[in-house]
Every structure is written in C-alpha cells, then in structure tokens.
Design a protein around this nucleic acid. Structure first.
Length: 186
DNA sequence: AATAGGATTTCCT
DNA sequence: GGAAATCCTATTC
C-alpha cells in the first residue's frame, strides 16, 4: 500500500483498512483485516480515549510521526496491541487493528494461541498479536513495504459502531467492521 | 450463559 | 497509587 493512503483522516483510513491484508512475509502469515478502530489526538479532534490526548511521550511518539508505521504497545501488562499510524506527520492519529480473518499460516497461529477454533485465532486486538507473534520489537516498522506489511484487499459490507473498551468518548462511532464476519471480536 | 477477578506495563486528567 | 484501547479462567445462575 502507499504512504498517501495513511496520510488521511484516521476514520477514513480505518474504514478503508477493513478488507486489507496483513502480511508477515518471513513467517508465512497472511490475514484479512475485518475490524478496526480510529484514534485521534488533541489538536484537530479531541479524543480523550487516545494515548496522544495528553501529549507526546516516549511510548506514543509513533502516533505523532509519519503515517504508515506500526505502533505496538502493551496493554494491561500482558496484551500487545497493533496500530498503524495515520493522519499527517505531526498530527497524532492511529488505527487499531482489532480483528483479522486468517488466510495463510493458520498452523503457526494455532501453535501461538493454543486454541482450537479458527474464529478464536485473531478475533481481538490482543489475540491477533499473539497469533502473529507481534511484540514491542515490531514497533515503528514501515508497513508500506518490508517484511511486515499491508496489502490492499476487497471488503464486504462495512458497519460502523462505537469503540469497545473505551471509558471516554464512547459517543464517537469510530469502529468499523465487516458485516456478518465470524472473525469479528465480541 | 453470564459475570467477576487476575495478570502485570506504562503512563499520569 | 491508580487507571488503561484486554483476554482467559472459574464460578454461579
């Protein structure tokens, strides 16, 4: 995918990322993104649920940098979350990848996850990171090219809803997912 | 089927 | 010290 794709409004990027494919070449893993959420910052759009809301820190600096980079961080001490930086450089924004439909390398994902149903492999932000083996070491990687990258794909009907697990800004409909897909979380 | 609790990093309205 | 963009397990209805 091209850099310009990510240099847009995070909500637009999130919507258009549904149906895109997440590829990890060297591990032989491929999956279709079926659920995303958009996060803003504190400049253009106020978003209290975003890490960028309270300003730039060592952890969230990727959200302020150039678009099309991975932003991986640990939540609740255990789970890794995969985000892609979006919006213009200097303008904080990101898209959280919430759920993926496995296409290739499902055997590896089963091994990483220790579950037996296909829908359980990647149906949640923490789950898909464990299935792919994504950790902080994959932070700040370029997804427009390279070993871990995104490729364009087709999406079905997209539905819009409020974000999950957010205690503030719940009224914002910034979550996008493919209608009726069993790999969507919750 | 539903809910409650624990694990345990990183940052502070 | 407490809260946070979660997931898994156990317990109870």
């Amino acid at each position: 995918m091209e850099r310009g794709f990510f240099r847009r409004d995070p909500a637009e990027v999130a919507k258009d990322l549904v149906g895109a494919k997440l590829v990890w070449e060297s591990k032989g893993l491929k999956g279709r993104i079926v659920e995303t959420e958009a996060y803003y910052g504190n400049r253009d759009v106020k978003d209290p649920a975003s890490h960028a809301f309270t300003g730039k820190t060592e952890r969230n600096q990727v959200m302020f940098g150039p678009p099309g980079k991975t932003y991986v961080y640990v939540c609740y001490g255990i789970h890794n979350m995969l985000n892609i930086s979006a919006s213009q450089e200097g303008e904080p924004g990101a898209v959280l990848i919430r759920a993926i439909e496995p296409l290739e390398g499902a055997e590896t994902m089963f091994q990483n996850r220790g579950v037996d149903s296909r829908e359980e492999l990647c149906s949640g932000p923490g789950k898909l990171c464990e299935a792919y083996g994504i950790t902080k070491e994959q932070n700040d990687m370029d997804v427009t090219e390279g070993d871990l990258r995104l490729e364009t794909g087709e999406a079905g009907e997209i539905e819009k809803d409020t974000r999950i697990g957010v205690s503030q800004g719940e009224d914002l409909e910034l979550r996008f997912y493919e209608s009726g897909n069993p790999h969507v979380s919750r």
